[in-house]
Amino acid sequence: MAHDAEHHDHPDHLAHHFDTPKQQFEAGKLGMWLFIATEILLFGGLFVGYSVWRGNHPELFEYSSHFLDTTMGGINTAVLIASSLTMAAAVTVAQRNDPVKQDKRPILILLLVLTLCGAAGFMVIKYFEWTHKFAEGWYPGVKYYEKPSDKSHTWDSHAGVIGVEMTTIDTVDGAPTRGDLGLPDTVTVELPAAAPVAVAPDHFLADKLAAVYGNDDAAHAGDPHGADVTTHDAKHDEHEQTHPLQDPHRPRDAHIFFNIYYMMTGLHGIHVIIGGIVITWLLIKSFRGQFHRDYFTPVDLGGLYWHVVDLIWIFLFPLFYLIH
């Protein structure tokens, strides 16, 4: 054993505490699988939230799912599967690359670039999906229950975003109402002044919110102007049907669906971005010709991570987009 160890060439990429490259490779692989297990449990928590809400309130999901764009989701699924395929192929190519001749290096680089394009494409589509949802009024969190709580607020003219294209997300507005709520500042949405529409707040939720977040705000909300707007707005019947908050068929707590959706796709999106960074790093090392049949562990492990991102999306897609 000792004799062998001395004759065993100890290449640069073999750390001092490992005896053989095989041992090092398998340690890395086991480590990655354990990390994958932690990722599954991290997302698992969100799947628990999903199951509890879907199990007890299926109506939220049946109603809200229609607001998601199945085509976009489907395209994104295809994009991720394709990039997973190129990533898996990249591992194979790296395993076949000759350390000296570097014969497979161009293909390896090409495959990694394609994978990276997949990641970028996914995020671009996701961006459009999210902004589209915002434009429809499905904001995440408390912003969803925004209501005319302050007269000076521009609510009357264009607070609603009903059926109007959102043009810019402009400034951070330190509106006093948000301060009163003890919440972070909001992003105001600038809209053409030609859209004089207002939104009825979700009475029940908004009221509870006001009560919970302090007297001041409750007083604001009880202000006759606020009440004015809500009654006045009932006349805008054309827009009522399109805005989620005004849909009479909207089940109570429909926002929970969207918040779970934003949490899950958001966390998934963060993982896509991290995956993109990892692939970029692999790409840089591939340019330098550092991966070959004797040393390809990073490609393999990076690939495993990327497949997990794909795996999670494989479940997210039917669970959110395909509910009837």
């Binding site: 297990a37 599954i40 698992g44 509890v52």
Partner: peptide, 16 residues
């Protein structure tokens, strides 16, 4: 490695 993978899913299932 497969056992870890399946095991982690089993724990999520348990939690659910």
């Amino acid at each position: 490695n497969g056992f870890i993978f399946v095991g982690s899913i089993a724990f999520v299932a348990l939690f659910i």
